[in-house]
């Protein structure tokens, strides 16, 4: 193999990611985010919170033979990454994450103070 052709600078390798498709829905309890991350196991998934930033990252591991030769490829990058900015009314500390069949489901609950409540109107 000609390494001059196939080896690329590390900086470029770091930036090559797939942005996963997501569905984002909000109800009165909070926000539910679903992301397609096919080929990512629970162990290869990383969910990070930094301040208001929520980042989802995953690595594809197919477990293929090292002798395999590619014939045709639509997925040519083995990393997924996508970031979101949470708002103050969401409780980033109570995020729940579940992975099933390559689909990540994240639920971000609303902070207690931000839940809708009825404001009583006093009559003086």
């Amino acid at each position: 193999m000609d390494t001059n052709v196939t080896t690329r600078p590390a900086a470029e390798a770091d930036t090559a990611v797939i942005v996963p498709a997501v569905d984002i829905v909000e109800d009165e309890h909070g926000i539910t985010l679903k992301a397609d991350l096919p080929g990512v196991s629970k162990e290869e998934l990383a969910i990070g919170i930094d301040g208001d930033n929520l980042t989802i990252e995953g690595t594809v591991k197919l477990g293929e033979s090292s002798r395999m030769q590619p014939v045709y490829a639509e997925i040519r990058v083995a990393h997924y990454k996508r970031s979101f900015v949470l708002s103050r009314d969401l409780d980033g500390a109570k995020i729940d994450a579940a992975m099933k069949n390559g689909v990540l489901t994240l639920t971000v609950p609303k902070a207690e103070a931000a839940k809708p409540r009825r404001i009583a109107v006093r009559a003086d």
């Binding site: 193999m1 196939t6 690329r8 090559a16 590619p70 490829a73 040519r76 990058v77 083995a78």
Partner: peptide, 13 residues
């Protein structure tokens, strides 16, 4: 969509 080195399909790309 450039691949990183060592990826199975990088060679193809």
């Amino acid at each position: 969509l450039t691949s990183f080195s060592g990826d199975l399909f990088a060679e193809f790309d």
